[in-house]
Design a protein around this nucleic acid. Structure first.
Length: 731
DNA sequence: AGCACGCCGACT
DNA sequence: GTCGGCGTGCTC
């Protein structure tokens, strides 16, 4: 028999053909001779016999971890995103699977009087020759089994909360240290172990003793005491077959309530749910809500976990009992047995698009997976993607009504300071009422530019042609493109004047201004690259329980919290995005502002802008996303943008700018007959010491265009090319 | 990706 | 004369 096989690790879109007498299952791993090397391959399927095929050397697992639906999804993703198929398969079966499993040699007959043995024991007793003959004759078969110890608790990652009422706890706490902990935890929502240790100075050992005494308990996620699920009045479709539901408006929490009953039924039917969120920092929040509402087991799966944690989730996904998996984009590759539904939270978030090889859009893949598995997919978002509204059955759009919005647009053309007087007044009145304040700033650090007051020179990164930003706290200049850092100095490299000064503002500078104006307020800055997700989460919990008055941060602040304390949410520098030459930026501004408004329900929103009359800004008041998106769709149809056409971005990286230009020019000229825009310099022309060019193809015949592109790129040599299909942004 | 093949510079 | 640099091409 001839099999189509995808080769692990190889950056090729192609599959290869091998023969075997065994009946191999689609998705199972085999060892093959590939280019004179023994390599892991994945069975994609059975095909017509053909000549010149080498034989499959070995079966590695004796079973497939993948459903046929997942194989179809991967094959589709490889073709659709021009991604190496073997690398996509590798994401389904990560390397830890081998580390935590062993292979058993099982006799298929009693005739030989053999016992089941671990592969390495079998080999040491009988040797490799015997194994091969037995396998060929079908006397034994290989079977992979899980040999993983349950990972031990990592206390740093756990949450602590009081286990008994406060009054009882106070009387039970004997030592001063214990009393401190009880005191710290009394407000009920709990905190991470790390935070408790930091705040009270006790040791992990002491906390463990307190657990033994029954004073406190550890949980893997924060359990939201105040969160109670109330069945929502929205009537949702049945969801027993494939269908796409779009739930828009409201906060993550409100949307969760409205899909609760659908999830509940799926769990009751004994099926599992895949719940995807954009960033790993949102995982604990969602898990907390789910654990409060369902008795089914909940597992996390994302890049910030330890390998053993991820492995534990993976092996549990292989079991068929109903579970809920809360994951980031990598979750579409989790081989969940018995999957009953997929939920994608904030599907418009660009984090779902993976720009590194293998490139993929996790939302599109999830949609494909649901389609192939004939299960429902729920897109839950304050706005959703523009393309979600294209050709979607109107009855499948469910809108959560918003309250009337209190939005103040502050025209910054009349202002000379970074933070307007109106905003300061709003902050003051909210602090007086005891409300929390969120201040969202797009840029990190103190200032996005460093300029010379004498000659006007702006510092740029030596490896990228991007301005260096100033980080005051660390006293560094930093490139946000490549991460290059250098110590801050005040002498201009161009004219030697001691006149460098920070220009513009980022989160750090705003924090400083706010502190100066409100010296007695409790203020924290959330910084996604200096803090890990549990630290971010801690800050948000502190804010929630009233230990912080003001949070300054980037859009991580928008990530899903239905925080009841927010009285004011302010956006400071979203203007810049409106004028970027990127077809999707206006929409992204709209999405992020809406996310903020919907999250901080009932709060006042302040928007500082130079563009008070901008259409995006005006649409915020109507709270009608659909109306805004339908207009956007109209535009995209007229001008020719997704979802009406497919947009393919082709990027070339080159050491030498002139060489790069020549190659990319010959590429576009070989693509005659296609609608091409460019080539031009990439918006970030110089990056990490390499020069980049790009061009766009708009096509209505995607497959033909892509195979033509593939031919051309193959002829030109494969180095330095990157291809993005319908990317969320073009820089 | 990895590895073989191939064609030019500095070494015993 | 050879050793070895990494450019190009191929893998069922």
């Amino acid at each position: 028999m001839t099999y189509e096989i995808a080769i692990s690790k190889i950056p090729l879109k192609k599959t290869f053909f091998y023969c075997s007498d065994w009946e191999l299952e689609p998705g199972e791993r085999v060892l093959v001779d590939f280019n004179n090397r023994q390599t892991v391959g994945y069975i994609v399927g059975l095909t017509e016999p053909r000549s010149g095929t080498k034989p499959v050397l070995e079966r590695l697992d004796g079973l497939s971890f993948l459903s046929t639906e997942m194989i179809k999804m991967i094959r589709w993703a490889s073709q659709h995103f021009y991604s190496p198929i073997g690398q996509l398969f590798d994401l389904v079966i990560p390397s830890f699977v081998d580390e935590y499993t062993e292979v058993l040699v099982e006799p298929t007959t009693d005739l030989l009087g053999l016992k089941s043995l671990k592969l390495k024991d079998f080999l040491s007793v009988y040797g490799e020759e015997t194994l091969h003959t037995y396998l060929k004759k079908g006397l034994v078969k290989l079977h992979r089994f899980v040999a993983m110890k349950t990972p031990r608790r990592r206390y740093r990652d756990l949450f602590v909360m009081l286990n008994i009422p406060l009054s009882k706890a106070v009387s039970l706490a004997k030592k001063a240290e214990e009393f401190d902990v009880v005191n710290y935890l009394f407000s009920g929502e709990g905190a991470t172990v790390e935070r408790v240790i930091e705040a009270t100075g006790v040791s992990v050992e002491r906390l463990k003793k307190m657990e033994e005494k029954g004073l406190i308990r550890f949980t893997t996620v924060p359990l939201f005491q105040g969160f109670e699920i109330k069945a929502n009045e929205l009537s949702l479709p049945d969801g027993r077959n494939f269908e796409e539901l779009l739930i828009v408006g409201g906060s993550t929490e409100e949307r969760f309530r409205s899909i609760y009953s659908v999830l509940k039924r799926i769990i009751e039917e004994g099926k599992s749910v895949l719940y995807m969120v954009p960033l790993s920092s949102q995982v604990p929040y969602l898990m907390g809500m789910i654990q409060r509402s369902f008795t089914a087991d909940v597992y996390a799966y994302h890049g910030s976990q330890s390998k053993s944690q991820r492995a534990l989730t993976w092996f549990n996904a292989q079991k068929s009992e109903a579970k809920i998996f809360v994951t980031t984009r990598m979750g579409v590759f989790l081989p969940v047995r018995n999957l009953g539904a997929v939920v994608v939270e904030s599907d418009e978030d660009e984090s779902y698009y993976q720009f590194d090889e293998p490139v993929y859009d996790a939302v599109e893949m999830a949609r494909k997976r649901a389609q192939e598995s004939r299960i429902p997919i729920v897109l839950s978002s304050s706005t959703g993607r523009v393309s979600d509204y294209f050709n979607l059955d109107r009855s499948k759009i469910i809108k959560i009504k918003s309250e009337r919005r209190k939005i103040f647009v502050i025209d910054m053309r009349k202002q000379t300071t970074f933070v307007s007087q109106e905003l300061l007044d709003q902050i003051r009145s909210n602090l007086e009422k005891g409300n929390g304040v969120l201040i969202v700033v797009r840029r990190k650090g103190y200032a996005p530019f460093v300029m010379c007051a004498v000659c006007g020179y702006t510092l740029i990164c030596p490896k990228c042609d991007v301005a260096l930003s100033f980080h005051r706290h660390a006293n560094l200049y930093k490139c946000h493109q490549c991460g290059h850092i250098e110590p801050a100095k005040d002498i201009c490299p161009k004219c030697d004047a001691q006149a460098l000064y920070p220009k513009g503002y980022g989160t750090e500078r705003i924090e400083k201004i706010i502190r100066y104006n409100f010296p007695s307020a409790r203020i924290a800055r959330i910084d996604s690259d200096e803090m890990n997700h549990s630290q971010i989460f801690d800050r948000l919990l502190e804010f929630e329980r009233g230990d912080l008055d003001i949070l300054v941060g980037t859009r991580v602040l928008l990530h899903g919290f239905g925080i009841s304390r927010i009285g004011l949410i302010a956006f400071l520098d979203f203007d810049g995005l409106l004028f970027q030459p990127d077809y999707n930026f206006r929409v992204q501004v709209f999405q992020q502002l809406n996310q903020g408004i919907e999250m901080a329900k009932g709060a006042t929103m302040v928007l500082q802008t130079m563009e008070a009359e901008n259409e995006v800004v005006r649409h915020l008041f109507t709270s009608d996303t659909e109306e805004f998106y339908l207009k956007e769709l109209q535009k995209r149809r007229d001008v020719g943008y997704p979802p009406y056409i497919d947009l393919v971005q082709v990027v070339l990286e080159s050491e030498e700018p002139s060489v790069g230009w020549e190659i990319i020019s010959s590429c576009t000229s070989s693509l005659d007959g296609e609608e091409i825009f460019g080539p031009v310099e990439h918006p970030v022309f110089k990056l990490k010491g390499k020069y980049r060019f790009h061009f766009l193809i708009k096509t209505k015949t995607f497959e033909r265009t892509l195979s033509k592109l593939d031919d051309v790129l193959t002829k030109l040599g494969k180095k330095g090319w990157r291809v993005f299909v319908n990317p969320p942004h073009l820089w």
